[in-house]
Design a protein around this nucleic acid. Structure first.
Lengths: 118, 118
DNA sequence: ACGAGATACCTCGCAGCGAGAGGTATGCGG
DNA sequence: CCGCATACCTCTCGCTGCGAGGTATCTCGT
């Protein structure tokens, strides 16, 4: 109401996290959503409408493989990382680290002025 | 070619960096663009079409104050942070740190499984 | 027995933001 | 004198995450 958005502020991050979590162990969509929300203490709270499309896209790109599982009459689609997915995770991680490092440099940057027209 | 985009991957970050740089010292738009690009070794390279609108918006929101400067026949609009801007910088910084911390936790997270359905 | 809520999957449309192209003007170096 | 760097600006496009909406089953409290 007061503010248009409350938590936004990211980009490509959902994909990175999905990749990373699936590298650790196979999981299903709903579990990923909860895990991200719980582990981050609600700082990161991607809706299912954000996660599922990414899952489908990553699978169609060969980064994930899925397998249906029947647990207590409930249908789960469990995803695991493929080799291509592992590769994708590496580049995504590197990118993220590069960005946070750069932002950190700008943020923490000493009292010295800008390198432009020094 | 291969990939549609080469460097995207952020959100709200430009605003944060502008705020932070202006907290250090007053600067003009073009200088901000160059400083961010140079300091980050081209990792972060926001175009002018990204920076100027943010500058205008932040000023209209009272976070920045501008002053025209005539240097060698060249017109510069120098911005400085207001008190409100300082406040905004604080919350934006806190937000960014919260997010990177959360992502780091997810990324580095030990071998222990998800806290969901432990 | 029944309804609410959690589990589990899915899709669609909106809105915000950054990217990039395009546009103006001046000063300086080759 | 042409082009590049400086310096400002605006507009449109496309991507992506958000929220709302939709289905179905199982469980727990009442």
């Amino acid at each position: 109401m007061t503010n248009r958005k409350d938590n936004d502020f990211l980009n490509g991050v959902p994909e990175l996290l999905i990749l990373r979590l699936l590298a650790r162990q196979p999981m299903y969509g709903y579990e990923l959503v909860q895990t991200i929300r719980l582990t981050s203490d609600d700082v990161l709270a991607f809706g299912e409408g954000c996660i599922y499309p990414i899952l489908h896209r990553l699978e169609s790109e060969g980064c994930l493989a899925s397998r249906r599982e029947e647990v207590a009459g409930r249908n789960r689609v469990v995803y695991r990382l493929t080799q291509a997915g592992r590769k994708r995770l590496e580049t995504a991680t590197a990118r993220w680290e590069g960005i946070t490092a750069a932002v950190g440099r700008l943020l923490g940057g000493g009292s010295d002025g800008s390198p432009f027209m020094a």
